[in-house]
Amino acid sequence: MNESLVSKYKDIITSRGLTYHYLSVPAVDDKPTLFFVHGFPSISYDWYHQINYFSEKGFGVVAPDMLGYGGTSKPTDISLFLHTAIAQDLLDILDAEKVQKAIAVGHDWGTRIVSVLSMKHSDRFLGFAWVVVAYQIYTPLPPIDVILEMNIKTFGRPLLGYWKFFEQESAAQIIEKNLESLISVLYPDDPDSWLTLMNQPGEIQAFIASGKTTKRAGYLTDEHHSRLLESLRKGGLASPLNWYKSTIGSVNSRIMEDIPEENQFIKKPAFFAVARKDHVCVYDYAVPQMKQYATGGLHLVEFQGGHWVQLEEPETFNRELHCWIRDTLQQNC
């Protein structure tokens, strides 16, 4: 990230009393503001390619450390990870920055919050972008073993085997002892390693508990790796893992009850970057899901790599996102 942007970080106490640490760069003239929402196990720095690119072109940029990460509060109370409440936290940030209209861009768990923003607060946004993980409708989830059986029936293999590890009480302690192992799994040089380590139950737990590492991806630079490692060492994993536990449990199971059916569709323009080699957020599910719900228009961009397309192919990603903003939202740019 450009050194001049480091001083642009701020802190806010949201309406429910949580501290959020976030980067804010004001827009120039009438350019829109991009609101970048990261996932697991990231920090706002994960968007540094996009922050540099769009801020240099006069776009506003807001990028928070999400709940559980970086300089933001790290609660262990699972109930605080209600996604509608987290969405309101983010609106509190936009209100503090006097941003009335933004473009929300989410990756990984950040896409869940972008989905909530689309369903409940669409009027505050010009458009929405999902990176790798598709738009999500909330439904009560069955036990993880049932989900894995459903994966096998639909896709011929389990997809979420790693959830069985992340939901365990011992997971945070095991990972904290072997952070390098976790990072090497999640940012791998070979995305096909997820076919075993992420998809198959028991594999990631055994791998991390033994302290093994796989070759780290080249797109995870030494600087980025150091920042990520420092953040996780300082804050631990107990709070970040609540993103999984709050979804596997009942915390987020009733979100749809107060959302009218017509609001379950994406009414604003939508951008979707899909990855052919993301073996968890699979193409064959993600694309039909987006096409079903994106009634306000969908721009789909296909990447051949894995889960971290904004890091792996930043030039292409930034160009495609920029072109979508220019062409689809031209009247607001």
Score class of each variant (00 low, 15 high):
Thr196Asp: 11
Ile174Asn: 07
Asp192Leu: 08
Ile175Asn: 02
Leu195Asn: 13
Leu179Glu: 13
Asp190Leu: 13
Met198Phe: 10
Asn199Glu: 06
Val185Leu: 08
Glu169Arg: 14
Ser181Lys: 14
Leu179Thr: 13
Glu176Val: 03
Glu176Tyr: 06
Thr196Gly: 09
Ile183Ser: 07
Met198Gln: 09
Lys177Asn: 09
Ile175Ala: 03
Leu197Ala: 05
Ile174Val: 12
Val185Asn: 02
Asn199Gly: 09
Ile174Leu: 09
Val185Thr: 08
Val185Gly: 01
Asp192Ala: 12
Pro191Ala: 14
Ser184Thr: 09
Ala172Pro: 00
Ile183Asn: 07
Ala172Thr: 05
Leu182Phe: 04
Asn199Trp: 02
Val185Phe: 05
Pro188Trp: 09
Met198Thr: 04
Asn178Lys: 14
Ser170Ala: 12
Ile175Tyr: 02
Ser184Phe: 02
Asp189Ala: 15
Asp189Trp: 11
Ser193Pro: 00
Leu182Cys: 06
Lys177Ser: 06
Ala171Leu: 04
Ile174Gly: 02
Trp194Gln: 10
Ser184Gly: 08
Leu179Met: 14
Ser184Glu: 02
Leu179Cys: 11
Met198Pro: 01
Ser170Lys: 15
Asp192Glu: 11
Glu180Ala: 12
Glu169Val: 05
Ser170Ile: 05
Met198Asp: 03
Trp194Ala: 13
Pro188Leu: 12
Asn178Val: 02
Ile183Tyr: 07
Tyr187Gln: 09
Ser181Tyr: 03
Ala172Phe: 01
Met198Ser: 11
Asp192Val: 06
Tyr187Trp: 11
Leu179Arg: 15
Glu176His: 12
Leu197Met: 09
Ile174Phe: 01
Asp189Val: 08
Met198Trp: 06
Thr196Cys: 05
Glu180Thr: 14
Trp194Val: 01
Ser184Arg: 12
Leu182Met: 12
Leu186Phe: 08
Glu176Lys: 15
Pro191Gly: 13
Asp190Lys: 15
Ala171Val: 01
Thr196Ser: 11
Leu179Ile: 15
Ser181Asn: 11
Pro188Asp: 09
Glu180Gln: 15
Ile183Phe: 08
Leu197Tyr: 01
